[in-house]
Amino acid sequence: MLWTNIFAGFGGQGVLLIGQLLAYAGMYEGKNVSWLPSYGPEMRGGTANCSVVVSDDPIASPCINMANCVIAMNRPSLDKFEQNVLPGGKLFINSSIIDKKATRTDIDVYYVPCNEIADSLNNPKVGNMAMLGAYLEATKAVDSKSVLDALLYKLGEKKAHLIPLNEQAIELGKQSVRDQIK
């Protein structure tokens, strides 16, 4: 099993965090993982992305050019990274704020209304978790339980009360993928 992923969006959408949660979850499950953020001038321009690899075998390159999965949280990310999905790979689009459809026909595309899901939970911050849920449903790369363990570690005991909210967001993200597969 080898999942190579690019998570991209603008600063504040939590793309680096969901990438990290995936890496932690993979590690908890005994897999090899790497998380590499962009830290160049593009980061200073307000957009953020990270490459995450989850693999049964030792990871060769942590630098991803062509990925199994691309997660685009905003329009510039879709424009930039749609071409980086491997044929047969998966593309996740935050349809709440991306008004464009994918142009590729050789990949699976999932439209996830992240912001609407977050709004339905009365917390605009959990849109990223909805996207992560969608990713987990479509890939089964790691178990959501491991992701929640990772989130608890990141939040710490003081913020543990936020876990159920995040769990709901993940579940709604998963549901949106199930609805599209049907």
């Binding site: 990290q20 993982v33 790497s34 998380w35 590499l36 953020p37 990871i59 942590p62």
Partner: peptide, 10 residues
Amino acid sequence: DGIIGQMMEP
């Protein structure tokens, strides 16, 4: 290189 510094691995 900068990647080794910025990258997270177990």
